[in-house]
Design a protein around this nucleic acid. Structure first.
Ligand SMILES: [Mn+2]
Ligand SMILES: [Mn+2]
Ligand SMILES: [Mn+2]
Ligand SMILES: [Mn+2]
Lengths: 220, 220
DNA sequence: CGCAAAAGTTTGATGAGTCAAACTCTGAAA
DNA sequence: TTTCAGAGTTTGACTCATCAAACTTTTGCG
């Protein structure tokens, strides 16, 4: 099987491909996400290409092959099921589970993973609202639009949080804007780059538009 | 922290030290247990000595330092809590959990480990009857004597199974001689190197003395 | 267009972990 | 006391993963 490093690159490439219109990942972004220098990323990407997990052209970016994408989705399944288990069964804080899953995802076998899935009742989303791929590798397209797309007076429901930073997650939790929570936009201050949002049964909170962009929602 | 390889050597050294009267481990035994060549074990043992985890003299065997032993006991705690979780919570077969724990033990953080311990109600033994060290590093001395020490007609109770081989564990399970099970010796055939044992509520089973030696028991 | 900054690549080095094979030491048996 | 098998050690080579630093290509901007 793939090593821990290889799995981390595959997952990063998958995530970056989702975010880019071309479906390609740049070396700089890849290196930053994995936490290595660009030179290291170039070296590794060549190995991934040799292993038929990626297609790579000098100065031309990387993209996953079908095989590489399947591997990436499998890692995503492991990661998100583990996060769900840590929150649901072990009652850990959703702000810390991402980093824990980052290591455990490489050590869990298919047998343990499927037992975990059974124990959790085959959940379809992780604690942050991200879709959990099926055992067959199918993954629901994560819909929704950022909170910044909503206007004063509009109502909606949080779908997912597109940022795993622990402090940000703690803030989101405190403001009541967890996945599933209904909300209403109270005001938007374009000049100050902030907006005020009220989660159902909560006091309104002010947040920067940059932060609001990380909260993905849908119309009520 | 220690790498996965280092942790595996420490655990093997701890186990071998328990089994040897001198408290020392030989390179051949260590290499075999870790699954490497003796040359590799020699190299690694020098590194462990440099890191103050072991004391080593050329041609003179290795032993853990206090620091090395504490690390080994910590790994044992992780391993055994994970095994217990896999059996109790995820309902996995006790014959397969050892290999699973062998990888997971290196990826679990103190935070997750203590959450696991809490979730399991602070168990004192793993599914094979081995003692689980406390968070402070205290470990109960695993008592008991091999089934071969018992004589015809004697009764007792299984304490632990001193062999993690999956096929052997499946056999033990089928014969009803799991940790905690009361039993009675029906007969011993020294010439044939076998004995017959009956677990409470079960039919008697015949087993080789070599196998019986791996079943550790106590007087009723 | 021209050119600097950004992005990407290459190279030489390092550390961890491993093996095969040549070599050395130790201890028990003849 | 010799000897030789088994245990232990050393060496040279290899893979994986990484960095720093020198270098090259691309791109966006004035
Ligand atoms: Mn990871
Ligand atoms: Mn998540
Ligand atoms: Mn292990
Ligand atoms: Mn065990």
């Amino acid at each position: 099987m793939a090593t821990e490093a290889v799995e981390n690159y595959l997952k990063a490439m998958y995530t970056l491909a989702r975010e880019s219109p071309t479906g390609e990942a740049g070396m700089k972004a890849l290196a930053t996400m994995v936490g290595v220098t660009t030179g290291t990323a170039t070296t590794m990407v060549k190995r991934l290409a040799a292993a038929k997990l990626a297609r790579y052209e000098r100065f031309g970016g990387v993209r996953l092959t079908t095989k590489g994408e399947a591997a990436a989705v499998d890692i995503l399944r492991r990661h998100r099921l583990i996060e769900t288990f840590l929150v649901q069964t072990l009652k850990l804080d959703w702000a810390v589970v991402h980093d824990e899953a980052e290591r455990l995802e490489h050590a869990i076998s298919p047998v343990v993973l499927e037992a975990l899935d059974r124990h959790l009742g085959h959940p379809s989303s992780d604690p942050h609202g991200d879709p959990i791929p099926s055992a067959e590798g199918r993954i629901r397209e994560p819909g929704g639009r950022p909170l910044t797309d909503f206007e004063t007076g509009q109502r909606g429901r949080v779908v997912r949080i597109a940022d795993q930073d622990a402090d940000f997650l703690k803030f989101v939790d405190a403001s009541g804007l967890r996945p599933g929570a209904p909300f209403e936009i109270r005001s938007v201050d374009a000049a100050a780059q902030t907006m005020s949002v009220r989660a159902r049964g909560r006091d309104p909170v002010a947040l920067a538009l940059a932060a609001a962009r990380k909260i993905v929602c849908e119309r009520e």
